[in-house]
Design a protein around this nucleic acid. Structure first.
Length: 270
DNA sequence: ATTGAGACCTGTCGGC
DNA sequence: TGCCGACAGGTCTCAA
């Protein structure tokens, strides 16, 4: 999402919505009343991100909230000039933003797990999801101590806890698998075991918080270069392939856990 | 309160 | 080639 934000920011920041088209209203949650009308004419003061949400602060004081779900994406194009016809909308193009910069931003989402919402300041402050999100993993607020406190007493697995957005915001299935592998921790391990009973961080908490930060920094960095397309993860989608940990020699396993695939090396992740 | 399973929806891929 | 099931990077709800 951070990479998406960086790509959209030049097209949308300080730009006005000159036209907003909702082509398909039934995304995961219904659009709010008069969505297009409320947005049209507004200027984007800032385009930020919180967890996996894209957040556009508007000049009206309202906030445009966007989520890509599993299959959502944005396309940025230049508006047709000199009377050239606008590109025909593609399959699953659900929302089109025409911006005063001449950029046309199109939201495409085959599975329609994504959504957009328009929040008043009051709604934003009381948002049931946003207001309960955990710390941003790359912020100073997230470290071994805060992670240990959050996982103290948790009976569920490390895997499940790290996917819980209230523990740490913005981690998904892939990066949880990758971070646990880097930290040498089993996804099946009880979450509470990285903390002492009083919630102090054990060494595993230090390794895990550091691994999460490293994995995310590298992921965003990789998106800046063309090489990301051929990148192979260390464990994700590598079932039955050799573990890449130096001197490990294990084989990556895949398990389904609460309907989600978990990849890990039983030999170097304990 | 916490936890896990199922649901939401469409596309793709591998096996037959 | 065509059909069918399994699976997909995320939440949300429901029931135990």
């Amino acid at each position: 999402m951070e990479s998406v934000r960086r790509r959209l920011a030049p097209a949308m920041t300080a730009a006005r919505f000159t036209r907003v088209t909702v082509r398909r209203p039934d995304l995961r949650i219904p659009f709010p009343r008069r969505f297009a009308a409320r947005l049209t004419g507004e200027t984007v003061v800032a385009l930020t991100r919180r967890a996996k949400y894209l957040v556009a602060e508007l000049s009206s004081g309202e906030t445009l909230l966007m989520h890509l779900g599993m299959s959502g994406s944005f396309r940025v194009e230049r508006a047709g000039t000199g009377g050239r016809a606008q590109r025909a909308p593609g399959l699953h193009d659900h929302v089109v933003f025409e911006m005063s910069t001449g950029a046309v931003v199109t939201f495409n989402d085959p599975r329609r797990f994504g959504f957009m919402d328009l929040l008043t300041p009051r709604q934003l402050a009381a948002h049931p999801v946003l207001s309960t999100l955990g710390p941003e993993p790359l912020s100073a607020a997230f470290d071994a101590s805060s992670l240990a406190l959050a996982l103290r007493g948790k009976k569920t697995s490390l895997k499940a806890s790290l996917l819980d957005q209230r523990v740490v915001a913005g981690l998904g299935n892939i990066y949880v698998s990758e971070a646990l592998h880097r930290a040498g921790l089993s996804p099946l391990r009880r979450a509470s075991t990285i903390a002492t009973p009083s919630g102090k961080p054990r060494p595993a908490a230090h390794r895990l918080s550091a691994a999460i930060k490293q994995v995310l920094i590298e992921a965003v960095e990789r998106r800046r270069t063309p090489s990301y397309r051929v990148h192979r993860f260390q464990v994700y989608d590598r079932e039955n392939e050799p573990c890449r940990t130096r001197g490990c020699g294990g084989t990556i396993q895949r398990r389904t856990h609460a309907g989600r695939s978990t990849f890990y090396c039983p030999s170097c992740q304990r």
